[in-house]
């Protein structure tokens, strides 16, 4: 399972979310490859799950993966809940 975190520049919020997602996956005991990039590179980086803050996420639909949209990047619960739902959806599709 490939998870790609995107933001406008590819080195601020996406990087921070990547750290949090790696922690969350570990806590959930889920294996996954997590990386980050800027929005313009997202299309060339095929992934199963795309994650971004709300404004970014609307640009990620149509890339063929499941999109996770976060309103509050530092809300651990929101991130974990939405990520868990996306992982379930991914498993159901597989």
């Amino acid at each position: 399972m490939k998870i790609l975190v995107c933001c406008g520049s590819g080195l601020g919020s996406s990087f921070m979310m990547e750290m949090n997602i790696k922690k969350a996956l570990k806590e959930m005991g889920v294996e996954g490859e997590v990386s980050h990039c800027d929005l313009s590179s997202a299309a060339g980086n095929k992934s199963d799950i795309y994650v971004g803050t709300r404004d970014i996420a609307s640009e990620l639909t149509g890339l063929g993966g499941i999109v996770v949209s976060l309103n509050n990047m530092i809300d651990k619960k929101e991130m974990k809940d939405k990520l868990a739902a996306a992982i379930e959806e991914f498993k159901a599709k597989a």
Partner: peptide
């Protein structure tokens, strides 16, 4: 960056202002 999309307001009340190196 901010004018094009207000995505750097990463959480309620918090702005992470940055650009590329």
């Amino acid at each position: 960056n901010h004018r094009s999309m207000p995505y750097m307001v990463i959480a309620p009340g918090i702005m992470l202002a940055h650009a590329r190196p």
